[in-house]
């Protein structure tokens, strides 16, 4: 039974003669099997999972609490009200949450390099990135999505009542979440790929992911132009949230602001995938 199942799953391995559709279908199936196995493992301690998600949701909202306390005290920042910033936070946080949910193993990639666990991915009959991502879903990072969703639910009615956002804007906001997640993926993948050369990437992740992630939960208008440029080009996490929301929330900009992320995201993901492929070719095992 198991052998038949393995044979079926291996039938669509890349490089074989199976049609594209069949390979995709089988890839989805393998992904589902691996992810469900990972989830079963993580849900062994359900109470711990629920408790930690709840506390992380409440306690991990420090950046929005910070900006909330500041705005409560001083009023709008550069024309952005607390509701505008709440929506910006929601989009950025949900984008980050999606990334963490689906690509949690990229966040832990340093361990694969240091312990030599990447060797085990190389002998699997699937691309290493696919196998890596399927190994673990960041179900314990749901708190990010919950925080973002809570901020959106709290701010959207007021923005709608003020006429700032309308019916179609909801679609653009959802698209912004997806773009934001794609940019997180691109930056996260590129940072992880650096691990093929430098092995230790935890500090690099703080620099390339955490710092821009925090920065882009605030309107980029507060930063000088050079820093704004960094956050929409070199570390482009601001491109997924701030740029489209600037137009959606009537804070300036033009309709092109909706187009830039749609163009930039595939390019960023493609560049990151190329870097990953190059790094993989240079991989040297540290042993196990």
């Amino acid at each position: 039974m198991t052998q038949r199942r393995v044979a079926r799953l291996s039938a669509g391995v890349p490089g074989t003669a199976a049609p594209v559709f069949t390979r995709l279908r089988l890839a989805a199936r393998v992904y589902r099997v691996l992810v469900s196995a990972s989830l079963r493992g993580k849900m062994q301690y359900r109470l711990d999972f629920l408790g930690s998600t709840l506390i992380q949701t409440i306690m991990g909202s420090d950046s929005i609490l910070f900006i909330g306390a500041v705005l409560w005290r001083f009023g709008p920042v550069m024309g952005w009200s607390i509701y505008d910033i709440g929506m910006l936070y929601a989009v950025s946080r949900m984008g980050n949450g999606l990334y963490m949910l689906l690509c949690n193993e990229l966040d832990r990639f340093e361990l694969y390099m240091v312990n030599g666990d990447f060797d085990t991915l190389l002998i699997r009959p699937w691309p290493t990135l696919f196998t890596l991502l399927a190994r673990g879903v960041g179900i314990d990072r749901l708190s990010f999505l919950v925080q973002g969703a809570a901020a959106a639910v709290l701010t959207a009615p007021r923005l709608a009542a003020d006429g700032v956002i309308g019916g179609w804007d909801a679609l653009w906001l959802l698209a912004s979440v997806v773009w934001s997640a794609m940019l997180y993926f691109a930056v996260g993948l590129a940072t992880s790929a650096a691990g093929f050369w430098i092995v230790r990437i935890e500090e690099l992740q703080v620099f390339a992911m955490n710092a821009p992630s925090t920065a882009t939960t605030y309107p980029l208008d507060v930063y000088p132009s050079w820093l704004r440029w960094v956050f929409v080009t070199l570390l482009p996490l601001g491109l997924g949230g701030y740029v489209p929301l600037r137009f959606i929330l009537d804070k300036g900009g033009s309709p092109l602001d909706l187009l830039w992320p749609a163009l930039a995201c595939p390019v960023a993901v493609w560049a990151a995938l190329r870097l990953w492929k190059t790094g993989e070719a240079h991989y040297t095992s540290t042993g196990t």
Partner: peptide, 9 residues
């Protein structure tokens, strides 16, 4: 980040 945010507010 914090210095610029504070300068703005």
């Amino acid at each position: 980040i914090y210095i610029y945010v504070w300068r703005a507010v």
